[in-house]
């Protein structure tokens, strides 16, 4: 039997600290996409509240309860990050384990907004994109999920296969922003 070593998506690529920004690999916990069956949204909402204490998020929003996050993830879909989904949820929604499918990075620092402004085609300034807001959009040429976790802190998810490109693109932007300081 071969001995296999588990590696995280950004293994060997992170952490980075350039200028006033740090980029580290995030561990969002177990990732499960939750897609309600047709007509099941209301029952799913109740089940989520009783099982995880999480409200179904409106588009472009995230619900948080302790270490559990429910991140809006597209039309009729949210991503449960943290705990394993309660078994009862499967009655109302398609649950898919996506834990190994996404690369997750945490971008933090005074210039984090300026860095993302170079790569993302939406307005991520705090006035438009407050703590707890999320978006499915592009970062460079990659589709991504971007969530504001704090005043100067973002969680970025891209497909795992894109981890190298994500770090490269962010590193280039970090260096460019730092060079203007």
């Amino acid at each position: 039997m071969a001995e296999l070593t588990g590696k995280t998506p950004c293994d060997g690529l992170l952490p980075l600290e350039i200028g006033a920004v740090t980029l580290v690999e995030a561990d969002p916990g177990r990732l499960t996409s939750v897609a309600p069956y047709r007509g099941g949204a209301e029952a799913l909402g109740r089940a989520l509240v009783s099982a995880h204490g999480l409200d179904w998020p409106a588009p472009n929003r995230m619900s948080v309860k302790g270490a559990a996050r429910l991140i809006w993830f597209g039309r009729d879909m949210a991503l449960l990050a943290g705990p394993a989904p309660a078994p009862g949820l499967a009655e109302h929604a398609a649950l898919t384990d996506q834990s190994d499918a996404w690369a997750a990075v945490d971008l933090a620092g005074d210039d984090a907004e300026q860095v993302l402004a170079r790569l993302v085609p939406i307005d991520l300034r705090a006035a438009h994109f407050a703590v707890g807001h999320t978006a499915r959009t592009l970062i460079g040429h990659m589709t991504a999920s971007i969530t504001r976790l704090g005043p100067d802190r973002f969680l970025i998810l891209v497909f795992r296969s894109m981890a190298g490109t994500l770090v490269h693109d962010l590193k280039t932007a970090l260096e460019a922003v730092a060079a203007r300081r």
Binding site: G74, R75, A135, R136
Partner: peptide, 17 residues
């Protein structure tokens, strides 16, 4: 047509709708 059209698009890099 040069003028009004009614087209299908997909929000591919967003919500997917």
């Amino acid at each position: 047509p040069a003028g009004r059209t009614r087209d299908l698009w997909q929000h591919e890099a967003g919500c997917g709708a």
